[in-house]
Each structure stands twice: as structure tokens, then as C-alpha cells.
Amino acid sequence: MSARKVSHILKLSAAEQREFVNSFDVVLCDCDGVLWMVSSPLPRTGEAVNALKDDGKQVRFVSNNSLRLDEEYVNKFTRIGVKDFQANDIMHPAKSMLYYMKKHNIKQPVFSLCSGHGNETLRHGGVDVRTLVTKEDVEIATLDKITRPEQKMGAVLYDINLNLTYAQIAAATRYLADKDCHFIAGGTDWLLPIKADLTLPGFCDFLDTIKRFSGREPTIVSKPAVLLGEILKDIYKLADPKRCLFVGDSLTHDVRFGLNCGFQTLLVLSGSTPIEQMWQAKAEDQPHFYADSMADFIELYANISKNT
């Protein structure tokens, strides 16, 4: 199917802008590339979130990044000026793993390839997390002993981890040889947008290595999996997906996730997706709307106010 014309929210007519903001009650918003880059700010994004809140919108945040603790997220949202942010306003893979394991009574302990902060989030939620930490160089002669399963694990957990090692990956495949061991994953992003002029590889290829070698398909609890949408609908009591707007910077993870879940979708061009890529995408992969950045909501509401 050929691409279709996607409307920029600031190029809608005055009546269409009012119709757009009246079409959703809930905003689900990605973070990295939308509210900030991983290591640099984006202008006026907190002000834009507050404009949505002032209009009575429920604003929640959905990230594939578990590398920050709740208190770090609280500080980060506070620094960009978001009003009344609470830790439970954000969902990320460590939290969705926690939800899934509790709902499905996954046995413990679990073996984790998640980051240190992700593991801390899981442990704070009552999960018995085991990891593999090597205190010396790994040699071929010691690899068997180092990666040998010590006991049965209820699950292997995978997520973004900047300190991931070969020994940890190898150990995970050995635990997954037990077919009773669940395989639960986040960390599916292709790209890691660090700042405006620097994007690095994501972590999906490491996950693919584990999948291919173990012959196991993981239960994905991060974007763009529909399962995450079901988790969000349950936690945030989202009765009507069509009244939700998902805002993100990635066609493959944010827009695809929103479309999979029946949400309206808005692509912002402040992160990983250039406008040419949006225009070249098939119609079924394009967002409903797009904007240059989250800050366009400030001008949008100013336009609506002026024309009311």
C-alpha cells in the first residue's frame, strides 16, 4: 500500500486543531527522543506536557529504557518542569516484567541480564534476582564452570544493559535449555539516540543471538509488543484505546506500538526518525499525525485559544 498524506498538527485548520485535541483524553508519551535525548535536553517539552495536563489530559509515559531508577525519573521530569509527576506515571520494561511475573506467578529465583538499575527495580518489587558477575578474565578453560546453571530458574530476563558480557549471554542460554524456564524480554530497540548528532546501536541483536541459539521466543513486554498495551490498559484503566494518543519518535517501536494497540499516533521528528523515512513508509506504518517536536503542543494550544 502506498504512503498517505500525514498531517502536521500545526498545519491543521483551526477547526481541525480543536477536533484533534478533543479526540483524546489520555496521552501516552515516549521519553528518549521525545522529552529529551539520552544525554541532552530538548526545548520546552515540560511546558508542552503541562499544557496537555492543563487541558485535562491524563499524561503517562512509556519508555523502553529501564536504566534509570524511579527517583532519577522523578528528578528528570522535575528538571524539565513537568508538574505533579509521580513515579507510577512511567512504565518501562523492568516495571512491565515485574507486573507480568506477578500476574502469572512466575517461579523464583530468576536469572537477569538486565541493568543494575533494572535489577534494583525488580528487587524492590520483591523479585529474587540472580546475576552473573565475573571477578576475573573469562578463559575458554573456565567458561563451562562460570556459566554452568547453579539451580533451576523461573525465568531469564533480558533488557538493555550497557555492561552485558559474553559470559552472561552464554549462561542465559544454558538456563533456557530448561523448557520450564520462562524467557521475558524488553530491550528490542534498534537504535540508542544519545544526543542530537549521536545515535548508537541498540540491544536487539544481542537478544536475537540468544533467541537463535536457544531456539526460544521471548515474551516481549516492551514496545512495540501488544502485551505491553494490555498491561498499560490494565494499570492505567484505559477503557477506550481510540481516546488515547501515543506520542513517540520511532516508526518501528512507537508508531507501530500505538497502531498495534488501537491508539491514535503522533510521530515527533526530534528523535530517531527523519521526515523522509516517514514519507517513505507504507501507509499502514505511518502515524495519524506528526509534529516537529513535543513543544508544538504549546503553539497548538495558543492557536486554539486565539481562535476560540
Rank of each mutant, 00 (worst) to 15 (best):
261 C>A: 15
224 P>L: 12
37 M>H: 15
297 F>C: 07
236 Y>T: 02
197 D>G: 07
170 A>E: 12
288 H>W: 01
222 S>C: 15
306 K>G: 07
220 I>W: 08
132 L>A: 03
31 C>R: 01
115 S>K: 13
76 K>N: 08
21 V>Y: 02
115 S>D: 06
218 P>G: 06
109 P>E: 12
298 I>P: 09
296 D>K: 01
144 D>E: 13
97 M>H: 04
153 M>E: 13
97 M>F: 07
110 V>S: 03
111 F>C: 07
285 D>T: 01
307 N>H: 14
33 G>V: 04
83 K>C: 03
64 N>H: 09
234 D>Q: 13
142 T>Q: 09
165 T>D: 03
144 D>T: 08
125 G>Y: 12
134 T>P: 04
250 S>C: 06
79 R>L: 11
81 G>F: 05
30 D>W: 00
117 H>P: 01
96 S>I: 12
302 A>N: 13
27 V>Q: 00
80 I>N: 04
259 L>I: 15
156 V>T: 06
248 G>D: 04
19 E>P: 00
303 N>I: 01
140 I>T: 04
103 K>C: 06
79 R>G: 03
59 V>D: 04
49 V>L: 08
104 H>C: 07
162 L>S: 13
261 C>R: 05
287 P>M: 05
183 F>P: 02
276 E>I: 03
49 V>T: 07
142 T>I: 00
192 L>I: 09
179 K>P: 05
28 L>N: 03
59 V>W: 03
65 N>R: 01
190 W>T: 12
175 Y>K: 07
80 I>K: 05
265 T>S: 15
286 Q>N: 11
71 E>Y: 12
4 R>Y: 02
295 A>S: 15
199 T>W: 00
215 G>Q: 06
36 W>C: 05
217 E>S: 11
158 Y>M: 12
83 K>F: 02
303 N>L: 07
44 R>A: 10
156 V>M: 06
277 Q>T: 11
172 A>M: 09
141 A>M: 02
60 R>W: 10
160 I>G: 00
220 I>G: 04
294 M>H: 02
44 R>T: 00
115 S>T: 14
148 R>K: 13
215 G>E: 05
235 I>S: 06
194 I>L: 15
286 Q>G: 03
293 S>E: 09
151 Q>P: 00
291 A>P: 00
21 V>C: 08
304 I>P: 10
26 V>N: 06
101 M>C: 14
57 K>D: 02
119 N>L: 08
157 L>R: 05
95 K>N: 06
152 K>T: 11
276 E>H: 10
41 P>G: 11
266 L>H: 00
149 P>E: 09
126 G>Q: 12
39 S>V: 03
205 D>T: 15
261 C>V: 15
84 D>R: 12
102 K>V: 02
208 D>S: 14
206 F>Y: 13
89 D>M: 13
199 T>Y: 02
174 R>S: 03
82 V>G: 01
112 S>M: 11
87 A>E: 14
210 I>L: 09
12 L>M: 14
241 P>G: 07
254 D>T: 06
208 D>Y: 09
163 N>E: 15
305 S>L: 12
162 L>I: 14
143 L>F: 08
257 F>W: 15
62 V>G: 05
177 A>R: 13
